[in-house]
Design a protein around this nucleic acid. Structure first.
Lengths: 356, 356
DNA sequence: GGAAGTCTTGTAACCGGTATCAGATACCGG
DNA sequence: CCGGTATCTGATACCGGTTACAAGACTTCC
């Protein structure tokens, strides 16, 4: 039991208090080598009496490992990244590792911040568009395992991503099935590898259907404001049949912007998103569901394997996605109840059915 | 420029490579003591040649500090916690500290996980209902600065929270102004101190208005499922005029559940939430906005002050909240445009206006 | 020319653990 | 009663930095 456990209690204090050497204390605490029950008890008594907690620093230094992993994500703070990070933390925790987070916020110093982080962890997950491949390769070459998430793997590092191409096809075909022929793709495809894949999958799907795709994607961002801005442009000209957005945030902003401009969705324009964030359910947004938490968890697992050194060739995992039909694409066919098992198809959905 | 920078390069390697002592290398790198330009150059050359990066571990051990802070949050993964954590990370990053995250997931081992985390950081933020006061006091007594967020401060630790009582009054009065007289409060108030304050503020507001408040809050959780479940109970009996929910997630679930049960919101029942998460905007939910990122940022600042030792008496900050009127409370009065400056009042809102 | 002072730099003692190696002790059979 | 072996434990060299202290080189001034 103990008086107070001020800090500054070291293994040497415990040792002298128990009348043994520091080696013995270490042995008792780690259970590496058998120790006489009597000494063991003396040591344990001293430990609890002094309120001793071994310093993680000293231990890490001696063991040559941090027992911590890092995760790096961009400035964007949307629901997507948060979910990925939480999934990552959960799995890493189960594997006995702490998690250090670093958001680059698009800062110029990002590469240095990542390098610095790399020095504090046993392994690192790098998300999307945060730092260049150079930095990643440099770190990997230092011998620190790296897993990239939602971005192409530079050299010999592992990667995890969600499927984009096939779902782009399914989504596009669904819209074509609704009778849409004139399309716009909204969202800055240079900001994230995912967006780029979605855009190119979308184009190919249109071409395959004999429809000329737009020459270029529109937009300079991937956030709600982007959609809001785009709405005015669209409303000013001739409306397309459908706007495929690079992610849900853009799509939600767009829908709101169109509403303000007096354009009906999906009555006059169909709108779709990507990711299936929570708000998408409540806005009745047709989208592609991404397994965000699972992405994080898989990254944590790959990293664990590599840190333990069991791994050989780089592994690349692609997690499946799921088309989620709601109302914003124009519900001409009866709803498939399986398309939305989650609570909350809701309000918006219902209003649409009744009002349009 | 360097060949490859394999790891394992230590300060001693640099020293011998430059023909100086390790002390000199350290001096050059930290700039603590003047060094002859010639030696300085030799050292710097060796550093870049070998690709030397000082070990964070060695440095921390010698300096006696981690240059890292921790943040502990509950199992809940909702949008609220994510935003707080991101706000915290951003500020901590600016203050030159890394951030370790720990989600307790309601695990039994939580206290030990937190204690362990406390050993890896210079300071710690503890959110809501994660570990008991005992644990927090124990850590604080070890000399590790602790800031609690959205929970009462146990002893001499700093705290940050959002205002709940006054906003509960405003919200309740608003509903009374709509003509509501029979109220239900939904959400498990034992799960979070915030919920408890909201519930008690709500009760007092009703009493003050001469309306008998419900004896007890309803519900056993704080997530969407909770609201969904509650909807059936409510629909089965006599409907109240309004349901005040402890947070947005419960409110959103409830609205969806009521919709499924054929009950109109706000036509038959008014529903309100708390927090103003992103989905609330798109669902037209009347709620109380909490400055989530600011909460995290303030906690980071308080912690920084305390770590630097500049602080004296414990400080307790209460951040203001804002009532956000949307549609779910029954929009009898014309909308105040200022009540919703954010994009996305949207779809749902509009449908309501048109349909009801 | 020598004493006193300033600059640089090296030596070594930390920080708090882990783990190797060898010495001490107890136990065994002959 | 003694050598040999198993067990337990202590001394100590790490891990990779920082920094107090002291020594050496070089001025500067009388």
């Amino acid at each position: 039991m103990a008086v107070a456990n001020r800090d500054g209690v070291t293994i040497r204090d415990v040792a002298s208090h128990a009348g043994v050497s520091i080696a013995t204390v270490s042995r008792v605490l780690r259970g590496t080598t058998p120790v006489t029950p009597a000494t063991r008890d003396r040591v344990l008594a001293a430990v609890s009496e002094l309120g001793f907690r071994p310093s993680a620093l000293g231990r890490s230094l001696a063991e040559g490992r941090h027992a911590a992993n890092g995760i790096v994500f961009p400035d964007l703070s949307g629901p997507y990244y948060a979910e990925v990070v939480l999934g990552y933390e959960e799995m890493a925790g189960e594997l006995g590792r702490s998690v250090l987070i670093l958001s680059t916020h698009g800062r110029d110093a990002a590469p240095d911040m990542v390098r610095e982080l790399a020095g504090r962890v046993d392994g690192l997950v790098v998300l999307g568009r945060t730092v260049s491949d150079d930095v990643i390769e440099e770190i990997a070459q230092r011998g620190i395992p790296v897993v990239v998430l939602a971005r192409p793997a530079p050299s010999a590092v592992d990667s995890v991503k969600a499927e984009n191409d096939e779902s782009a096809h399914r989504l596009t075909e669904h819209l074509i099935g609704h009778g849409c022929r004139r399309f716009v793709f909204l969202g800055d495809v240079n900001r994230s590898p995912d967006s780029m894949e979605r855009w190119s999958g979308f184009r190919v799907a249109l071409e395959r259907a004999g429809i000329a795709p737009p020459d270029e994607p529109r937009g300079v961002g991937l956030r709600e404001e982007e959609g809001l801005r785009a709405a005015d442009d669209l409303a000013a000209g001739e409306l397309p049949d459908a706007v495929v957005c690079a992610n849900d945030e853009v799509a939600l902003g767009l829908i709101e912007g169109l509403r303000r401009a007096g354009v009906q969705v999906p009555g006059q324009v169909a709108v779709t998103g990507w990711d299936d964030v929570m708000a998408a359910r409540y806005a009745g947004l047709t989208t592609v569901r991404q397994p965000m938490r699972a992405l994080g968890a898989h990254a944590a697992r790959l990293l664990d394997v590599r840190i333990r050194g069991d791994a050989e060739a780089p592994r690349h995992e692609v997690l499946p996605t799921e088309l989620v039909i709601r109302d914003s694409c124009g519900r001409h066919e009866p709803a498939h109840p399986d398309n939305d098992k989650n609570p909350g198809r809701p309000l918006a959905a219902r209003r649409l059915e009744r009002c349009l």
